[in-house]
Write a protein that binds this DNA or RNA. Structure first.
Lengths: 149, 149
DNA sequence: AACTGATAATAAGTTTAGCTTATAATAGTC
DNA sequence: GACTATTATAAGCTAAACTTATTATCAGTT
């Protein structure tokens, strides 16, 4: 008999995400970032890794539509956190990059996420936390055509 | 060095949930439940376990506000899936219970969730899946005051 | 019994996040 | 050069949960 009931699979995933977000928000609130909301964060993390990206790439990485990503990018641009410049390789495309202010914010977000990581390590141990996340990663990366157009 | 980067903690949880929901929706679509949406499911699972509950309890279990739960319950009532009756023990409260139609739907939801569980088992193995979910459960149950009012 | 603070349900309106539908421009292919 | 795919983008819609505020009841106190 599994420790977590089969029927609670979805709840477990949902509540785990909610718990993470609450912890993150609690930390971010202490540092104070007006205008930065949940949905901005996915973009930040991806840009952090890749430097400059196209909207389409960011959308794919975040698992949302390009049109949805557009709004986020525009908001960040208005906040002076990213710039959109012509892509020399493709005049349809625009490259999204951080400003200095944007990079400063990323540092804070990264630190905050790592702080929650540390909280989780204290509860589970680093090896088990890593194992857990690797398992989740494996599940979500398994090819699955959910019918997305 | 962890396999999943610390900074990807949030993404991993978010994408795992999204993956589950897509798989579930793909299955449910095959069976066809008009009117039943994402947010109804959390209520169902909790009611399934407890039989009859108050709105307040359901809200707490789902991690949402009572006012949000209200809307869900009303929708389910209109669909003829639950009833709201006076609580003999407290005339402020109302007890929410499934109708026969509601119980039939639960069965389908439960089966569908278990089907996704099986898909995940095929990817990870049952022992590892169980271990993963138990770890998440532990994290989310760790007392944490996120500043909720 | 009247008073007070907490709790249950509820309503109204707002916010957030993502979606769908549709357009214009450019890229690459035949 | 025509045709199709891709990039960015706009407009408006939907889903889900939120905040603020009201009413009724409860439980403990004076």
């Amino acid at each position: 008999m599994p420790k977590v009931k089969k029927s609670e699979l979805g709840q477990t995933l949902m509540l785990a995400l909610k718990n993470f977000q609450q912890r993150l928000d609690a930390e971010l609130a202490k540092r104070g970032f007006p205008g930065i909301r949940q949905r901005h964060r996915a973009v930040f993390i991806h840009l952090n890794v890749h430097g400059a990206s196209r909207s389409v790439e960011l959308a794919a990485a975040a698992g949302i539509r390009p049109q949805s990503m557009m709004k986020i990018v525009h908001e960040l641009e208005e906040l002076g956190l990213v710039t959109r410049e012509e892509d020399p390789a493709d005049s349809r495309a625009k490259l999204i990059q951080f400003t200095a202010a944007g990079r400063a914010l990323i540092d804070q977000l990264t630190q905050t996420t790592e702080l929650v990581w540390d909280q989780y390590c204290a509860l589970l141990g680093e090896a088990e936390l890593d194992r857990t996340l690797s398992a989740l990663r494996l599940l979500q990366e398994a090819t699955f055509d959910g019918g997305r157009t």
